[in-house]
Computed example of a mutant assay.
Amino acid sequence: MTAQALSSSPAFSALPDRDRRAVRLWLMIVAALIVLMVFVGGATRLTGSGLSITEWRPVTGALLPMSEASWMIEFDKYRATPQYQLLNHGMSLGEFQFIYLWEWGHRQLGRLIGLVYVLPLLWFAVRGVVRGWFLVSLLFIGLLGGGQGGIGWIMVASGLTPGMIAVAPIKLMLHLVAACGLFVAVVWIAVGLRAPRAEAAPPDRLRVVGTVLIAALLFQIALGALVAGLGAGQSFNTWPMMDGSLVPPVSMLLPESPWWHNLAESVALVQFNHRSFAYVLLALAIWHALDARQLVPGSKTARMAVVLAGLVILQAVIGIVTLLLVVPLWAALLHQTMAVLMLGHAVSHRRMMSPARVSMGA
């Protein structure tokens, strides 16, 4: 059955508009919480707090230590980690509590998102507001969200192994990209529940490029996660030159052997890849905006394409400022959060070019 047929099915048409608005509002709240989660996760990483809780306790971990003795038990566990021994030796209990609370807050927010997702979903399902394949899709997204907690623990565990003072960059990248993937799915469905578009569907070329832009943004976010994981932003703090040249020598970019290890281990190559793909993304977004203005002038599609290009330009400026200032906390958090917001706009833009809205009852 086609998407258009699903959207006009009796089961779908019988649902009141207020139910569609309620589901859409719920999903947008979930999306906003994911953005907040990325922000808090970035702050947790940048404050060096991510390895302060050395165990994964999905249920009992929701409780904070309530006495000095219980705090000391947690502190002793942290003092056994390589990060404490190699980087934070001599840290006071008060300093430990600061980083512990950041990580605890990050995990607590994950639990909150789970509740905000699952409880309304059950309510909507019991009332028959969502059913069939739409319900299956939402349940699958919920399972992926639960799995994100497991990915987070795999990431943390990578930083607790001997000789490590931070999490493995590849696993940090996986954790962030998985969060962004969930964000894309939630926003895509939420925007699909909007009222039908009044204007005609845009040409296929705009939809294809809109899809490519989403994939490109996810790829750039993945490259940015590698930069963050290696602390690559602390080096080569000039622009547009990098160590005095636009393209650093191969010996600098590829110091490791075999060469593919450099993709995640070479500070120079990781930063160069993030810089270089930013130019590709910028060119693609600007071309898409100009193309939309020519093909569908004055339309909402064209306006959203122009806004997306503007957001990509703004994000590039924020990235350059972050690099030149040697990654201050505020700039790094702004850069990371802006990336997710920009991704949300790209998904909304692409979804609104689709010919039919989501059916909740097919």
Rank of each mutant, 00 (worst) to 15 (best):
A309N: 03
G319Q: 09
A268R: 01
W260K: 06
T301R: 07
D291S: 12
L284N: 05
N262Y: 07
V250W: 12
F236H: 08
A302R: 05
S257A: 14
A305C: 14
N273W: 00
R293T: 07
T301E: 07
G319N: 09
W259S: 14
W259R: 11
P240H: 08
F236M: 11
V321K: 11
G298L: 13
Q294Y: 00
L311M: 13
R275G: 05
G319S: 12
A316M: 14
M252I: 10
W287I: 09
Y279K: 02
L290I: 06
H288L: 10
P248I: 11
Q234T: 11
I320V: 15
L311G: 01
F272R: 00
A305W: 00
R275C: 03
L311E: 01
M252V: 14
V267M: 01
A316N: 11
W260D: 15
E265F: 04
G233M: 05
L263A: 13
G298E: 12
A232D: 03
A285E: 10
V317N: 10
Q315S: 02
V250E: 14
M242G: 00
W259H: 10
W287F: 13
R293C: 13
D291T: 10
S276T: 15
Q294R: 14
H261M: 14
L284H: 01
Q271H: 11
V312E: 03
L314W: 07
P240C: 12
F277M: 10
P255I: 10
R293Y: 05
F236T: 02
P258M: 11
L281G: 05
F236Q: 01
A292C: 13
P248W: 09
I286C: 05
N273I: 06
D243A: 15
S257V: 13
F272C: 08
S257T: 14
A302H: 04
A268T: 06
N273M: 08
F236V: 01
P248C: 13
P255W: 07
S245F: 00
R293M: 15
W287H: 09
I320G: 11
V270E: 02
M252A: 15
V312D: 00
W260C: 08
L295D: 07
S299L: 11
G233T: 03
S257W: 12
S251W: 03
Y279E: 03
P255M: 08
S299W: 06
F272Y: 10
I286S: 02
S251H: 07
A232V: 03
T238L: 02
D291P: 00
L290N: 01
S299R: 05
P248Q: 14
V307P: 00
W260G: 08
A309P: 01
L269G: 04
L281Y: 05
V250G: 07
G244D: 00
D291G: 00
V296A: 14
P240D: 08
S299D: 14
V270T: 08
D243V: 01
I313N: 02
V296P: 03
V267T: 07
V307N: 03
A285G: 04
